[in-house]
Amino acid sequence: MHVQTYIPKAPLSGFVNYFWYFEGYAPPHSKELAMPDGSIELVINLREEKIKLFDREYKNPTRTYGSSVICGPHSEYFIIDTSEETTVLGIHFKPGGMYPFLKMPLNELHNTLVSLEALWGARAHELREKLLESEVVNDKFRILEESLTKLASRPLVRHPAVSFALNEFQSLPHRSPLSDVIGQIGLSHRRFIQIFKEEVGMTPKLFCRLRRFQEVLNRIDRTKNVNWLDVALACGYYDQMHFIKDFQAFSSLNPTEYLSTQVRHPNHVGL
């Protein structure tokens, strides 16, 4: 399998974590559980004209999308079809990073998957055709970077309140109470939540829960012997019961099941 990533230059780097490319990904499992982290993923299948997802019981394909799909800001897990070898290219946006490239509030895409053509029209098809014309991965990244810059429908600037809050939530996801952060912003509670939902795709409270869950996954990554109570307390949970409830809500697994599964990446588990 060939894997390659690229971090775009500013100002895109303020909205995009990285571009990624997978070629020849053929895992032994036919389905893969994707965990939510509140970010948005753009996925372009360069081998087939389809992207297939399964229902939440892991059984039946619910929908086959076109060759490109936007995974909106998720607070729920979803299941990807990995039964066929693929060549895919994508963009892993930072939380709220997709906002300048859409003409709608991001909360309208919460827990949804939408074909890229439905959002960008013919420009989505044109982008894929350009990518297919190039055989060098770095050239594909360059095309993606240039095209994404031109596709911006809003200024590449975050709302100051959202920028401040995201920095606080991601650097101190469990040590800085939500009320303290909002108190430093200078907006009413209701106004701040409205702006945050529009730009990030969910409420600040839900986003903080996801950051706490993600911190758990990062702490236990590649660890075999875990003291779950210590992890729960270190990540800001009041007790182990609340920790397990959140873990199951976001992943469909209990913590012990998660550790026993085949993990390609903290957010991707083979089924």
Rank of each mutant, 00 (worst) to 15 (best):
L116M: 05
I185N: 09
H92S: 10
A249P: 03
T112S: 10
R209D: 10
L151R: 00
E126V: 02
T261N: 14
L166D: 12
K50H: 01
L46C: 04
E32T: 14
L253K: 11
R211N: 10
H29P: 00
A26I: 01
F207W: 11
A122Q: 01
S163P: 03
V114N: 09
Q214Y: 07
Q248A: 05
I70A: 06
I185G: 03
G14N: 15
V216Y: 07
G121H: 06
L106H: 14
S179R: 10
C235Q: 04
A232L: 05
P73A: 13
R190F: 15
N225V: 07
I91G: 08
L42F: 08
E117V: 03
S153M: 08
M104K: 04
P61R: 14
V269E: 08
R63S: 14
K103F: 00
I244D: 14
S115L: 08
F101T: 14
R123Y: 00
L253F: 14
N60R: 15
F169I: 15
P28F: 12
R123G: 00
T261K: 05
G97M: 15
Q194M: 11
P255S: 15
R212V: 08
S13H: 09
L187Q: 11
H268A: 14
H242P: 03
G183R: 13
H74D: 06
L178C: 09
R222M: 12
N60F: 15
P36I: 03
G14Y: 08
L217M: 08
D139M: 06
K150F: 00
A122E: 12
V269D: 04
F15K: 14
Y21A: 03
V162K: 11
D230C: 02
P100V: 08
K103D: 08
A161Y: 09
K245W: 04
R47M: 06
I185A: 08
E117P: 01
V114G: 10
K205F: 10
A118T: 02
A124C: 01
D239T: 09
P36C: 12
R211S: 15
H242G: 15
Q248E: 15
L148I: 03
P8R: 13
P177W: 10
L89C: 11
R190C: 13
S68R: 02
F243D: 11
V162C: 10
N254V: 13
L148Y: 02
E85Y: 01
W20S: 07
V3H: 10
I70F: 02
V136I: 14
F169D: 03
S171Q: 11
K31Y: 05
S163T: 06
G72F: 06
L46T: 04
E146F: 01
L33E: 13
F15L: 06
K140E: 08
V69L: 03
I182H: 05
I70C: 05
F22P: 04
Y99D: 07
N45W: 00
A10Q: 09
A232V: 13
H268W: 11
I80P: 00
S13P: 04
E41F: 01
Q194G: 00
P73N: 15
I182P: 06
N107D: 13
F196H: 07
